[in-house]
Design a protein around this nucleic acid. Structure first.
Length: 429
RNA sequence: GGAGAGAUGGCAGAGUGGCCGAAUGCGGCAGCUUGCUAAGCUGUUGAGCCGGGUUGCCGGCUCCGAGGGUUCGAAUCCCUCUCUCUCCGCCA
């Protein structure tokens, strides 16, 4: 949500934001029209209501025998008020539905572009892994080790499902637990969140309207499975006015994530890259309405994620996401992409977003500043998501014989082993 | 799942048709006080929206879980829903 007063005064900037984000600028003018009409009717109905209230109050002071006649005289106005109220509510709902679609203007340093092909690399750590043998992809490695079973996953739950067994199941837990610990060291508060949430949470974080097709809905109960813990984590204080001293609030959650991946038929069908259910450790920060603070925090959160990738000894790069690839509410987004040998390119594993007060306005998330309630700023970033990162982990750390070298940071969860050796393979010296 | 009770301002808690946006206490803030010791006294203190003036201001409207209804008028009456608590049942 944008500040309605600001939009009224700067419609061109919002239209420009829509163009930059490759969205239809129609919402801007539809909102302006609905908003103006709504306020016109609101003023009219409030005036009428004020007159009726005043008349009613006087009526209460009258002798009882005069009341009936006086009351009768108010009925016509009352009927008119009811009609006005009905129209006013309709207009308000229409204005709101357009307001929910207004795009947050991108930060000045966001590169203009149509989609992810226009993202700009900012820096990288490591280079594409060089092999002196023919590397296997993660599916082949999984089969070789016998710890990845995609066919039976599909058998159980349809396409884009999988089973991790044995060491790979352990490796997944290791990565998640190490990521959580990594964030605890940085002072984040761990939270276990609901992943089945109300519509308000999805609307509040900006996924709805628009993202309905991407979410699994439990219609019977009016609930939705979240695609990220960002949704419940950011919504925790919805409707509250927080104390300024409580900010910033830095939280981390490990949760399962569910995505329908509608409209991606035929895309990334092989392996673990794009699946319906996965695990993610997500960091969310709620802070003061301070542009500069927000900017710095964004960089810090990016650093928490890349520091962890360093511990996993993976090559990756950070990209400045282009305007056309930004979500409606995002002011700026950095993606982290790990090198994935089988794709022969960098694959997105993290997404760090800065929202300004976009989510806070929708959620009613405020804090008190100089006695007045002010909307907070919110940010979020992945810490780690699996199984996608397992692709990078297996493929980049593989050896000629198919064994996988474990980064030191994960060994404690895998019995201290340095290497995952495929069954039957002769261990190298 | 069955039976009952409840949902009021940051918190606690009054209020059963007009004088209630709402007593009182606590908390917060400001000032005073400082011989009766983590004290006392006084004042002040909700949010949103619309309009006008434009730092502080004025006027109006809305909000007593949510939605609907009765009435000239509802925190107060009626209906639906949600949530919380107690008891029973069931259960990871």
């Amino acid at each position: 949500m944008l500040d309605p007063k600001w939009v009224r005064e700067h419609p061109d900037e919002v239209r420009r934001a829509a163009r930059l984000k490759r969205m239809d600028p129609e919402a801007v003018d539809r909102w302006l029209a609905a908003d103006a009409e709504h306020r016109r009717v609101l003023t009219e109905s409030e005036g009428l209501r004020a007159r009726l209230k005043e008349a009613s109050r006087k009526l209460g002071a009258m002798p009882p025998e005069e009341r009936a006649a006086a009351a009768a005289g108010l009925r016509a106005d009352k009927a008119r008020l009811k009609e006005l109220e009905r129209v006013e509510r309709e207009l308000e709902a229409e204005a709101r539905s357009w307001a929910l679609r207004l795009p947050m203007p991108p930060a000045p340093e966001v590169p203009e572009g149509d989609d992810d092909s226009d993202n700009v690399e900012l820096w990288r750590r490591g280079e594409p892994t060089a092999f002196d043998f023919e590397p296997r992809d993660h599916v082949a490695l999984g089969e070789l080790h016998g710890f990845l079973d995609i066919p039976r996953g599909v058998e159980l739950a349809g396409s884009r499902n999988y089973l991790l067994t044995g060491d790979l199941a352990l490796l997944e837990r290791a990565v998640l637990q190490a990521a959580l610990d990594h964030m605890l060291e940085r002072g984040f508060e761990p939270v276990s969140v609901p992943t089945l949430v109300k519509r308000e949470c999805l609307e509040g974080t900006g996924y709805f309207p628009g993202g309905e097709e991407q979410a699994y809905a439990v219609e019977k109960d009016g609930l939705y499975l979240v695609g990220t813990a960002e949704v419940p984590l950011t919504s925790i204080h919805a409707g509250e006015v927080l104390d300024a001293e409580a900010l910033p609030i830095r939280r981390v959650a490990l949760s399962p994530c569910y995505r329908r991946e509608a409209g991606t038929y035929g895309k990334d069908t092989k392996g673990l890259y794009r699946v319906h259910q996965f695990w993610k450790v997500e960091q969310v920060v709620i802070g003061p309405a301070d542009e500069e603070w927000s900017r710095r925090e964004h960089e810090r959160m990016l650093g928490h994620a890349t520091d962890f990738l360093d511990r996993l000894e993976l090559p990756y790069r950070v990209v400045n996401v282009s305007s056309g690839d930004l979500g409606q509410g995002q002011v700026q987004k950095f993606d982290v992409e790990c090198w994935m040998p089988s794709r022969n390119t960098w694959g997105e594993t993290h997404s760090a977003s800065r929202f300004h007060d976009f989510q806070a306005r929708r959620l009613g998330l405020r804090y008190r500043e100089d006695g007045k309630p002010v909307f907070c700023h919110t940010l979020n970033n992945t810490v780690i998501a699996t199984p996608r990162v397992l692709i990078a982990l297996l493929e980049n750390h593989q050896r000629a014989d198919g064994s996988i070298a474990l980064p030191e940071s994960l060994r404690p969860w895998l019995g201290g082993r340095e290497l995952l050796v495929p069954p039957g393979a002769a261990t190298e010296a």
